[in-house]
Amino acid sequence: MAIVASGTCLRRNAWICGDYVRTRSDELWSATREHISLTVSAVALGLVIAIPLVLFARRYRVTVAWIGGLANVLYTVPSLAFFALLLPATGLSRTTVLIGLVAYTLVVLFRGLLAGLDAVPDDVRESARGMGYGPVRLLLTVEVPLALPAIMAAVRLATVSTIALVTVGAVIGHGGLGNLIYDGLNESFKSEVLTASVLCVALAIVADLLLVIVQWLLTPWRHHRRRQPSRTSQPSRAPRGDARGDGTGGHAGGGQAHGHGRPSLAGSPPGSPTGPATGTTT
């Protein structure tokens, strides 16, 4: 083929090969497109399902434990097994991968949204009610804006993990860049594997940055405040008190912009069972 003749790095099977990128740019581009479309659909569908679910769970508190438990089970089942279990229903289709991905984003988003809304201080809610705010206005103009950092943290986490997870979809032929990694494995084609892997990570970084910008644009009041405080010089002390207050579970902690909220993300998945546990003993 012309491809082989054109590049020596292809013949040498080098890790980094410009000729690969040049000659297979169509393939790379379509894989990237599939990757992006799967990710965007999964996060969007996850949000569409998570929002009413969170509102329902907040209305009927008893269901939180049930939904949380179910979410934990979904989250624990390995993705490969999840895709395989869907096979009898949806076959080797894009839908199978999408359902699996939506299930995972749903878990992350449900927890994040719920924790964010729950972390809104009660006195703020009381004041709004005292000023005559109805439940819908309270939610849209008070609770959601205050919970935005936590909500966006959940969206970012869901997006970044989905981008990584899409690759596993290669097992049923719909894995975006994962398909190239899978092909590259079978042919021991180094530059194909490395290029696709790097693109994957790059996608995750770009998506995360975009979401940070979106969050920045959505919360203008947070940047004005940041110029003044003198306590930012002691960042390790101040936020810790807050973090202890609302427990280790959930993405609740504010100040995630300086990376202090992050630890709660790591602790979040099984955070839901530990939360109530400490609550009942004290």
Partner: peptide
């Protein structure tokens, strides 16, 4: 410590496995 886990989340496990295997 915190960035380690953020990076870990962005890197697909599948990609790392394959990179190590053909490497």
């Amino acid at each position: 410590a915190i960035n380690v886990s953020n990076i870990g989340r962005a890197v697909p496990t599948f990609a790392v496995l394959v990179l190590l295997a053909i490497g």
